[in-house]
Design a protein around this nucleic acid. Structure first.
Lengths: 368, 368
DNA sequence: CTGAAAGCGCTTACAG
DNA sequence: CTGAAAGCGCTTACAG
């Protein structure tokens, strides 16, 4: 076995040393160096020390992860695919909490976390990113129905888990009962006596539009969670004799307080001004509350607002926001662990993710 | 060349096909299949179509990223190392904005983004994670001086850029003038006439402690940005004849509104109650404002507050927060592009990152 | 326009 | 306790 470079002293700043070179420097086989790193019990402590010593001297930082990955047949990372949503919404506390949950699961399993998001410009660049991702599996977070990126993930034939999303192939699903949760939010308002309501909606499709939404667009919404929440609201409306299609729905193009404020303004400017607003996220709800304040309306006296998510900001709002709690971080953890289990060939049990209405101060009877 | 499995119809759900198998199915060499994916100009469109057709039939999703990475000598991803901060602070808008900037840079370069954070439990698990990260380089975000994870990154001898951090080796640095920026914040308050001040500090070391900070701890702070901001405040204090060490500093263990509130409460409970508070982040400042409100104090009439960061929440606060603006997203973008340039062997020009005081409504003369 | 050959850096039974 | 051998899946000059 010949070695290039060889074992001088000092560290070569440019080329990095290889395992083979370390082996040559110590005078053992590559297998032994590999064992020093991967199977300490396979060699004497003294020899192992010599190996490490040589590695240090040569500036060898341990086996190359890419080569090891190829040899072992696994990349050592899990991929997370998310829509542009998150990109903006790296500022969306809910999405961020979710990511944190996945990250815990990855950590537990000693895996890295590779982020793949849809680039702002559409195009095939992103599909390529999915193909180029050195990962052992994917968790796909809230992509619209029929998104080509999801197809790209499925085509890789790696284990995948789908979150807040329509079922595809045999990939396991993680999510909450959005319809039931939304319904409970609406029922709360209805139970308080409200009959003039407005809805502030999240993006309905991959090409979100800000503004009021017609029946056609409601039906063709491609984000599963938004579609289900709309359905849940509608079910509650119908149950008290309201015609769901008559309840105005304002779609926000991004999930931010600013957009929620715009939605609130639009809703409050309506002829039969709503006495209550259902928002599909807390960010949007907070924005609607700001709109009310700007219009000189008091929450909850003049306007009731109910959110969705129960992010930390909700409890801190003034008044504190009544909302539907959903366990974002647990959702991420569950999705991550599910994927890890799949990678190991285990069939894990699915944890049920519960939601619950959290009644705080932002909703009251109309005209109270 | 023999092929296992061979080219039947239908898709094998378990084992994924290899390039070699596709080549065998088409009756060409592996090189040609590789060219079909990587160098379309190297073969006729018709043949290329036949290759893709066979790939589709066999369920081959394109060259394996890990193998390609080994062969090409690059992993195709950049690693981001951050302290636990971000883990909590996946909820820290500033950190999240920074991440978004890096993510843009990675996208531009067609690289993935691999997250490596310090696990909550200390220990060597994280050092291993650095060693196992299949990346071409690292950007290291705001780690404390002497952190072993940074050592681990440096030992990998990959290109690295350091952000908000003390210089190490020859890695380029990205950051703002924290000292000058902090000084301008303090000078604003001093200029308004305040002489009884309090400081709400970010974590000072990797082992953050909530509570008032003594001179010893101030001197031994290991987070560069916090240390520099402390110095900037002190310089401004000294310039008007205040004794810096007499100004109370309350350290927050995490960068959240809740911690800021606790700090605010502690500061407002002091014998000579401060008339103004300097917070090292907007989140902390927002918390301090809440503490004032809880104490029945009006901002800015009874208490002035100045933040740091200028996250979107700052402008939306009530009253809007006077703060130091820093370009978080641009900082991430700059760090990412710098790393990408290094990977390509280019020597990029460093963009200066400017800060500026943004005067809004949360600071006024004392007793106004 | 296409193929044969070498090799990226490592790990893993297996034999000794 | 240690080593020889095979090979993970691909890409890249190079020759034809």
């Amino acid at each position: 076995v010949e070695v290039k470079g060889g074992g001088g002293s000092g560290s070569s700043p440019l080329r990095r040393a290889t395992l083979k070179e370390v082996a040559a420097a110590v005078g053992v086989s590559p297998a032994t160096v590999s064992n020093a790193y991967n199977r300490p019990d396979q060699l004497s402590p003294a020899l192992r020390e010599r190996v490490f010593e040589a590695a240090r001297r040569l500036g060898y930082a341990g086996p190359d992860p890419v080569a090891r990955g190829l040899r072992r047949g696994r990349a050592g990372a899990i991929g997370v695919l998310y829509a542009d949503r998150l990109s903006y919404a790296f500022v969306d506390p809910a999405a961020v909490l979710f990511l944190r949950g996945i990250s815990e699961a990855a950590e537990e399993a000693g895996l890295g976390l590779l982020l793949v998001s849809r680039a702002s410009r559409s195009g095939s660049g992103d599909v390529e990113a999915v193909g180029n991702a050195a990962v052992d599996g994917f968790v796909v977070y809230s992509m619209p129905d029929g998104d080509p990126l999801v197809d790209a993930v499925l085509e890789r034939r790696l284990p995948a888990v789908l979150v807040d999303q329509v079922s595809r192939g045999d990939a396991p699903l993680v999510g909450i009962d959005d319809e039931g949760a939304a319904r409970s939010a609406a029922e709360h308002l209805l139970g308080l006596g409200h009959r003039r309501l407005g809805v502030v909606s999240l993006e309905l499709t991959g090409e979100p539009r800000g503004g009021f939404v017609d029946a056609q667009r409601r039906r063709t919404a491609t984000f599963l969670a938004a579609r289900n929440r709309l359905a849940g609201y509608a079910a509650a409306f119908g149950a008290v004799g309201l015609v769901p299609s008559q309840v105005p729905v304002y779609e926000c193009a991004v999930n931010t307080v600013e957009e929620g404020r715009a939605a609130g303004e639009a809703l409050l400017a309506l002829r039969g001004r709503p006495t209550a607003i259902l928002a599909m996220s807390d960010m949007l709800a907070l924005g609607a509350m700001e709109a009310a304040r700007d219009a000189g309306l008091s929450v909850p006296d003049d306007l009731s607002v109910v959110g969705f998510d129960d992010v930390p900001e909700a409890a801190r709002a003034n008044p504190p926001l009544t909302t539907v709690h959903q366990p974002h971080e647990r959702k991420g953890l569950a999705a991550g662990r599910l994927l890890v289990a799949r990678l190991r060939g285990e069939e894990p049990e699915l944890e049920a993710l519960q939601t619950r209405l959290v009644v705080r101060g932002s909703a009251a009877p109309p005209g109270a």
